[in-house]
Amino acid sequence: MSSVVGTRPALTWAVHLSVLFLVALWTLPTLGILVSSFRDKDQLAVSGWWTALVPAERNIVARAAPPEDAVAENGNWIIAGNVFEGSGKATAFGISSREPAAYAVGDTVELRDGGRLTLDATGDYTISYVKKPDGNRGQRIFVTSVEPPKFTTANYRTVLFSEGLGKSFINTMTVTIPATVIPILIAAYAAYALAWMQFPGRALLLATIVGLLVVPLQMSLIPLLRLYNDIGIGKSFIGIWLAHTAFGLPLAIYLLRNYMAGLPREIIESARVDGASDFEIFRKIILPLSFPALASFAIFQFLWVWNDLLVATVFLGNNEEQLVLTGRLRELLGSRGGNWEILTASAFVAIVVPILVFFAMQRYLVRGLLAGSVKGG
C-alpha cells in the first residue's frame, strides 16, 4: 500500500481514521445535549438521548378520580378515567409501591375498600363498587408504560423567557469583550519586546511567563479580591476585566511571542535599515503578519471568559444587576440541580455565541497555533 506511484500508505489511512474518531468523540456529547434539550422532561429523566427515537418505558403514579365522582351503572357504582395525561401504552400496573408491576393489563384487582380495579393497555381504568363508596381521595395506581418519543420546545421557552436573562446576556458581553481585547493589546506589545528587542533579563522574564502558565488561578482569587476591595474596585466590571487580563496574559504572551519570533528576520532588519522605529515596525509589519496568532488567542480567551462562572461569581457576586449568563442559567436549575431538561437547553443557549465566534475565526486558529508551536527565535 505504500508505493511511490500514488497508493496511499497505511499510515495515512490510520491518521485519517484517528482524526475521524477524535471528531466523533468530540461531537457526540454535543449532539447528545442538543437532542436532550428537545426531549420531554419525563422521558429525559429515565432514558438516554440515544433512545430518543424509540418508545420509552417509565413508571408513573396516577390517582383515580375521588369516590364522590362515582356514577351508578347497572346496579354498581363506577369510577372511570385514564392514567395518562397524553398518550401512552400500559404494560403492567399495581396498587402498591412495593409491587408497582404486580398485575398485567386487563387483570381485575380487589381493592381494600371493596372495589374492583381493571386497567387496559390504553390506560383506561374502571373501579366498580357494589355500594356507593365513601372518602375523598382516589385510589393510587402504579403504571409501567411505554410512551412514544416526545419532543418539545418548552425547555427553550423556559430558558429564553426567564426573567433577567436579557440583562445577564448583556452583562456577559460587557465582561467578555473587554476581557478579550485588553490582554491581546498588552500581550502583543510584550510579545514583540520578548521576540525582537534586546534587554537585560529577557530570558528570565520569558521563563517566568512560561512558569505562570501552570499556576492555578484559584490560588490568587482570595488575595486578589482582598486587594480589589482595599482599593475600591471589588465587585465591579473593572475588577473582573483586570482579573481576566491577568489570568490570560501568560498564555497570550507565550503564543504571540513564539509566532512573532518565527517571522522572517530579513523584513525586520530591512525596516530598521530604512530607519523605522520599533513602534513603526510593530504597527506596520508585526501586527498585520501576526493576525492568525491574535485570532487564535482571541478565540481561546473569548470562550474561556464567556463560559466562566467561578471568576464572575468571585469578582461580581450574584446580585441581579451584575449576574452573568452562566450564573443566571445556574439559578434556573434550582437548589437540587435535577432539572436536566433546563440544563441541556441552557447549555445550548450559552454556547450559541461562542460557536459563532469560533466558526467566524476558525480558519486562523490552526495557522496561528501551528506557527507558534514550531517556530522560535
Rank of each mutant, 00 (worst) to 15 (best):
S2I: 02
V4C: 00
A10I: 07
A24H: 04
R39C: 07
K41F: 10
N59W: 09
A65N: 12
P67L: 09
E73S: 13
G75P: 14
I79N: 08
A80L: 15
A92K: 05
F93S: 11
D107V: 01
T108D: 05
R112A: 15
D113C: 06
G115N: 07
L117D: 01
L119H: 14
A121S: 15
Y129W: 06
R140A: 07
F142T: 04
S145G: 15
N155C: 08
L160K: 04
L165R: 06
P178A: 12
A179T: 04
A195Q: 02
M197E: 13
V210Q: 10
L212K: 01
V214M: 11
P216V: 08
S220T: 13
P223S: 12
P223M: 14
D230S: 08
K235H: 15
G239E: 06
W241C: 07
L242Q: 14
A246Y: 04
G248F: 03
L249D: 10
A261R: 03
I267G: 04
A271I: 05
A271Q: 13
S277M: 12
F282A: 08
R283A: 15
I286P: 04
P292S: 01
A293I: 03
A293N: 00
F297I: 03
I299L: 05
I299V: 11
F302K: 02
D308Q: 09
L310V: 13
A312S: 13
N319H: 05
T326A: 14
T326I: 10
L329N: 03
G338R: 14
V353A: 09
Y364W: 06
L369K: 00
A371G: 13
K375I: 05
